[in-house]
């Protein structure tokens, strides 16, 4: 099951968001996508999930363009967690996760015990089983996010696309969620903000800047101080351990130039 993008272009209202993006996702890997705000991560995720169609280029699944697969066939293979999907419906936590079974159920297929078991397990995986009867609007942002992940797990698709999955989560849940996703026998593509998380959990990292992929490779190769300075405008030290892992330490920026200070004081 391989997902790949070739020559993707995407623009909205005359503004180019993605230009000529190509990316092969290896089966079973955890691929992180990092980049500053507005670099095109979210658009790339939506195109890879088949939610939007590229204006040029194509996303292929097993060599066939996504547009040639049916919507339901795609959903059985690719689960997608968007940023901040909300509802005003009075649904329970469990019902939100049950939606993940949709691609496996036809109009007349009855809900089965197997579906119940899958939903139970997904709720346990994200540590939300005890909240299963709570109403959506009573839950915190982090709890909602964990339920979205559980819904994607209940979808049982071999490929999981996550758009900033750790938003709204406290540090404990951020790490346990990425660990949980990592432990699944899944191919994962995740847009991530935290460079250390990307370093810790990803097999490969793609760096985006201005709608292009400017670097792709293992964390140790990609996370170079010079590159991070170019892309994010931050000064960092990268420490490496003997196991090949790397850690990013941010340096406090230089004090602002005196000229600006004077203006502020005046």
């Amino acid at each position: 099951m391989t997902l790949s993008a070739k020559g993707l272009c995407w623009s909205v209202g005359g503004t180019t968001i993605l230009s000529d993006v190509s990316l092969d996702v290896h089966p079973g890997e955890f691929l992180g996508i990092i980049g500053p705000n507005g670099s095109g991560k979210t658009s790339l995720m939506a195109l890879m999930a088949g939610i939007r169609r590229p204006q040029a280029g194509a996303v292929t699944l097993d060599g066939k363009p996504l547009s040639a697969h049916g919507r339901q066939a795609i959903a059985r293979r690719i689960a997608f967690v968007e940023q901040q999907a909300e509802t005003t419906e009075r649904i329970t936590a469990r019902q939100a996760v049950e939606l993940g079974r949709t691609p496996h159920l036809g109009a007349l297929t009855p809900w089965s015990r197997a579906d119940d078991a899958i939903v139970d397990r997904a709720l346990e995986e994200v540590d939300m089983a005890h909240f299963s009867r709570r109403l959506w609007h009573t839950l915190s942002g982090g709890e909602r996010q964990r339920l979205h992940i559980a819904r994607a797990l209940a979808q049982q698709a071999p490929i999981l696309l996550l758009d900033e999955p750790t938003n709204h989560l406290d540090i404990g849940h951020q790490i346990s969620l990425l660990q949980l996703v990592r432990e699944q026998d899944l191919t994962v593509v995740a847009a991530l903000h935290d460079l250390n998380h990307a370093a810790m959990f990803c097999d490969r990292i793609a760096v985006m800047q201005g709608g292009r992929i400017v670097a792709l490779g293992t964390p140790a190769k990609v996370l170079e101080p010079q590159r991070l300075a170019d892309v994010f405008g931050v000064t960092v030290d990268v420490e490496r351990d003997s196991a090949g892992g790397c850690f990013i330490r941010y340096r406090r920026p230089e004090p602002r130039p005196a000229k600006l200070k004077l203006v502020a004081e005046a």
Binding site: G50, I51, G70, R71, A79, E82, A85, T87, T102, P103
Partner: peptide, 25 residues
Amino acid sequence: CLWHARALDAFTFGTESAASLGIPV
């Protein structure tokens, strides 16, 4: 309507979410 009951459920989190759940929106 009944034939589309599950599809309507899938719109709970919006059209993009429905599409990612396999609904031909």
